[in-house]
Write a protein that binds this DNA or RNA. Sequence first.
DNA 1: AAATCGTGTTTACAACTGTAATCGAGGCGC
DNA 2: GCGCCTCGATTACAGTTGTAAACACGATTT
Lengths: 123, 123
Amino acid sequence: MDVRISEAELEVMEALWAAGQPLTAAEVADQIAGHRGWSLATVKTMLSRLAAKGVLTHKEDGRRFLYSPAIKREDYVGHESRRFVERMFGGRLSPLVARLAEEDGLDEKDIAEIEALLRELKS
Amino acid sequence: MDVRISEAELEVMEALWAAGQPLTAAEVADQIAGHRGWSLATVKTMLSRLAAKGVLTHKEDGRRFLYSPAIKREDYVGHESRRFVERMFGGRLSPLVARLAEEDGLDEKDIAEIEALLRELKS
DNA sequence: AAATCGTGTTTACAACTGTAATCGAGGCGC
DNA sequence: GCGCCTCGATTACAGTTGTAAACACGATTT
């Protein structure tokens, strides 16, 4: 998938990924209603655009459609992460860690987890 | 700065940041000519838009302008990094490290550097 | 049967992006 | 002095994004 998902569209994908099961447009709208003040119409537009982009599928269920993600969140997130690190730090992750560390973007738990990850990587 | 810089615009900012000194539009275009096949006109549009967004400044130098970044790269990059980690990983950096690690996005050097960083953080 | 409701589809519309071409005006060459 | 070159400024124009409203049509309610 080399398709770009916009920020607003991503919100819809997140709802679908979080649900773990096919949702109707109305259900998606409900899921999102919490953080964003979107109208149902807006959600429907997002769903159409995402379908056009091929990142979600819809099966008919009588009157309505049931929408499901067509790509895995971890794939998308991994792809975007690589892109981001590439663009901002020339592909190296350490400068990102350095930058966040310098701005206190890391707490104890995060640090410990990363260390554990790296330890495991070397084994 | 809560201003968004588009991907193409960022290319121009990178040229200015890399130069380390004020550049004319033509110089910026030359810098960029390597990676991107932009016409001088396009570069001029980018410079205008970036000036409108307030992320660069221009001082007159006789006939032409000399453009300089109005924000520091590290500030911008730090800001975007926080935004990204927030959006994709709920603000936690470790899942990003995990994701990249799992896709072999990390080499030995990167790992060593990150470990050194973390060690220093704890002292 | 008529009014209403829920759904997907079509249309809207301004802001932002990518990518330029054109215009107006000062300088330079001859 | 007159044409050409260089600049910034203005205009262009299609595609994407955010945010919906309007529409068409079958289902449900009254």
